[in-house]
């Protein structure tokens, strides 16, 4: 272990949410859940531990999937493996289950939490595009004036940059919520990398829309790894909204993808390849929906 772990002087593993929120009220706690991003980042020196390490795994009410009502609620400590195995989500939002299936490896899925994956704010975060097309929001809680306060932030406003979100240091992401998709809602997710297993996305594309009379409505398209944050592809959405799902519409959406995706060259892929893949995936998910 490196010297960074020696920076930790206090370890807390509370059972109640208010205890957890109080422990981070001064903004001086490192939150630990699955640790699949935290451990390698601190080990490599990319991130430093604060003096207080706050394990939220035992906090009651932070885990679990509530899928009975009109609003679906996934607790922050829910693991990616739990999402993958959820029969309820497989029915309500199969796109999320599919993304969980393509997420890293079995071992990482077993440990990684949904909340952690979102707070890590990687442009390549696998859970972000499907949640964006589901219109999800995150709940952020904090302790202020002797009481817990919670605010909701739409996921598309949550990400600010690589590793950066609007969440304040004293806030804890407690849950992800989204409205139960209406009848006729379809969603697709597609990602790629140079190797099928244990992959970090070169590019990912998700589509969510209501299909009625051969036309798309309430279209949401999200992309990963094409910009500093996962993003909503507004130009592609505009090219699809209210349009008949035919070849001309697909071509227009593919052309519009270039307006939304502003990728960079990095170790994993060139900007050219990412732009190319975005077009391929936009066409692929639309063709897939057309085929249904």
């Amino acid at each position: 272990m490196s010297e960074t772990i020696e920076a930790i002087t206090t370890y807390l593993a509370p059972r109640r949410l208010d205890e957890a929120l109080q422990a981070m009220a001064d903004g001086e706690a490192t939150v630990l859940c699955g640790g699949t991003d935290l451990a390698p980042q601190t080990e490599s020196g990319a991130r430093q531990y604060k003096a207080r390490l706050l394990n939220i795994n035992r906090v009651e009410g932070l885990g679990g999937i509530a899928a009975d009502g009109g609003e679906i609620r996934i607790g922050a400590t829910t693991t990616v493996a739990e999402i993958r195995r959820s029969a309820a989500l497989a029915k309500i939002a199969p796109v999320l289950v599919e993304a969980a299936e393509h997420f890293a490896s079995e071992q990482i899925r077993n440990a990684a939490s949904l909340g952690g994956n979102l707070c890590n704010a990687s442009p390549a975060g696998d859970m972000s595009p499907p949640l964006l097309v589901l219109g999800a929001a995150v709940e952020l809680a904090c302790w202020r004036d002797g009481a817990a306060h919670t605010r909701r932030v739409p996921l598309e406003q949550f990400f600010v940059g690589p590793g950066k979100t609007v969440k304040l240091a004293q806030e804890l992401l407690t849950a992800v919520v989204f409205a139960r998709p209406a009848p006729g809602f379809v969603a697709r997710f597609r990602k790629s990398g140079p190797r099928p297993a244990l992959e970090i996305s070169t590019v990912s594309v998700a589509l969510g829309a209501r299909v009625a009379d051969g036309r798309l409505g309430d279209v949401r398209v999200a992309m990963g790894s094409v910009a500093p944050t996962p993003l909503r592809a507004r130009h592609v959405e505009a090219a699809l909204e209210g349009r008949p799902l035919d070849a001309a519409t697909v071509a227009a959406a593919v052309a519009a993808a270039a307006e939304d995706a502003k990728p960079i060259d990095d170790v994993r892929a060139s900007a050219w390849y990412r732009s190319h893949l975005v077009k391929v995936f936009v066409e692929e998910v639309l063709d897939d929906v057309r085929g249904n």
Partner: peptide, 9 residues
């Protein structure tokens, strides 16, 4: 060159 409007085309 340049004739296709989508990748699969």
């Amino acid at each position: 060159p340049g004739k296709a409007t989508t990748p699969s085309e």
